[in-house]
Design a protein around this nucleic acid. Sequence first.
DNA 1: GTTCGAATCGGTACTCAGTATCTTAAAGTC
DNA 2: GACTTTAAGATACTGAGTACCGATTCGAAC
Lengths: 221, 221
Amino acid sequence: MPTTVRDRLVDAAFELFEQQGYDATTIDDIAARADTSRSTFFRHFRGKDDVVLPDHDALLARVGERLSMSAPGSRAIALREGARVPLDHYLAEGPTAMARYRLASTIPSIRDREIASVQRYVRLFAQHVHGWLEDDTDGPLRAELVASSIVIAHNHVLRRWLRGEQDEPTTRAGLDRALDRALLALRADPSAGGATIVISGPDPDVEQVLEQVRAALNAPR
Amino acid sequence: MPTTVRDRLVDAAFELFEQQGYDATTIDDIAARADTSRSTFFRHFRGKDDVVLPDHDALLARVGERLSMSAPGSRAIALREGARVPLDHYLAEGPTAMARYRLASTIPSIRDREIASVQRYVRLFAQHVHGWLEDDTDGPLRAELVASSIVIAHNHVLRRWLRGEQDEPTTRAGLDRALDRALLALRADPSAGGATIVISGPDPDVEQVLEQVRAALNAPR
DNA sequence: GTTCGAATCGGTACTCAGTATCTTAAAGTC
DNA sequence: GACTTTAAGATACTGAGTACCGATTCGAAC
C-alpha cells in the first residue's frame, strides 16, 4: 500500500504521544519511527503540535463557502448547514478524531492551539452574521454572540460523540436541538422596531401566556 | 523610587517588543536592558510571553469569589458583578492594558495565549452557572452559552475602550447594555415548565405585542 | 540517450527558549 | 557573630525551529 511519508509521520506521532507522552517524545523520535529524517518532518509540518491538528484551513474555507451563498431569507438555514460542515467532517474521520480529542484533552500546548482554532470559526461566523446585520446598531456584538453560540452548540454535541457518549445519528439530531437553543439569541432581537416575541416551551397554554405577557409589560424594565 | 527587578523587566520587554518586534527580541536583550541576567528573567516569568500577560490567576480567583457568594435570588446580579471585576481591573490599569492590547493584536503567539486565558473565564462562569441549573436537562450547554455570552459582552466593551473609542464611564455603562443582550439567552429558558416570555425593545405597543403573541401561538412550531 | 529542471529527502550547523544546577551576595534571625 | 533564608548571577544542557547545502529520483524535452 502506498503510505506516504506524511501519513507515516502522523501515525508515528500519535503512537508515541499516546505511549510516552507529548513532552517526552522528540521530533527525532517521531522521524526515526517513521523511518525518515528530522528535515522531512519539518518539511511536512510547521511544528510538533501541527501533526495532531487537522487542517482547519480547508474546513474553514468550506464553512465560509457555505455561509457566502446565503440569501436574505435563509440566514438561519445557512448557519445551521455551516455548523454541520465540521461536524460531518469529524464524524467521517471517526477514530482519528477521537484520538486527537484525547490528546487535546491532556496536552496543554495542543489544547491551547485547539482553542485558538475554534476562535477562528467564531470569527468566520461573526463576520458573515455581521454583514447580514449591517444596519443594526450593536451589530458586531450581536454577531459575536450568535457566532460563538453556534460554535459552542457544535462543540457541545461533538464532544459528547468524541467521548463515546452518543452515536452518530443522535449527534446529528443533537446539533439541531443545540442550535435551537443557541439561536434564541438571534431570534430575540431587541433592536428591531417595536418588540420581538420569543415563545419557547412545549405546548404553552394561551391564557397563561397572555397573563405572563401582561405581567411582563406592566413590570418596570 | 524603588523599581523592582520585575518591574524593570516588564518595562524593558514592552519597550523592546514595540520597538523591534516580538520575535526579534531575545530574552537576553530584555535582561540586558533591565540590567539583570537571563536567570533572573526566568525566575520571575515562566516564559517570553508571560511578561506581557497580566496574572489572570488572581483576577480569575476574584471573579470566582464573587460568583461563589451568590444567593438563588440574585444570580443575574452575581453574573453582572462578576463580569465587572476584570473590566474595572483593566480600566484601572490604563495605558498598560492598552499597550498589552496592541501587542496581543499583533503577535500571534501572544494572541493565542490571550484567547486561551479568555477561555478560562468562560469555564469559570460556566461552572457556576451549571451548578445553579443542576436540575436542568441541557444544563451544561445552557451554562456554556450564558458564560461565553457574558465574556463576549465584557470583551466587546473592553476592546472598544482599549482602542480608545470610548471613555471610561461610557464603557462601564456599555457593559450593562451588552450584558442585557447577552443574558437574553439566560432569560429565554425553553426548559422551564409552561412557557417563557422574553419581551425586549423600547416601549412596545401593547396591542401590537398581543397581536404578535397570537400570531406566534398560532404559527406551527 | 542525454540533459535539464523540479521535487523530495537527508545532513549539518546555527539560534534561541526553557530547564537544571551550582555558586555567591545580601538580608534577616537567633 | 554564627546560621538560615532568599534573591540573584553563572554555566551547561536539551530540544524546537530555521537556514542552507548536497544527493537522489523522476519526467519531459531535445
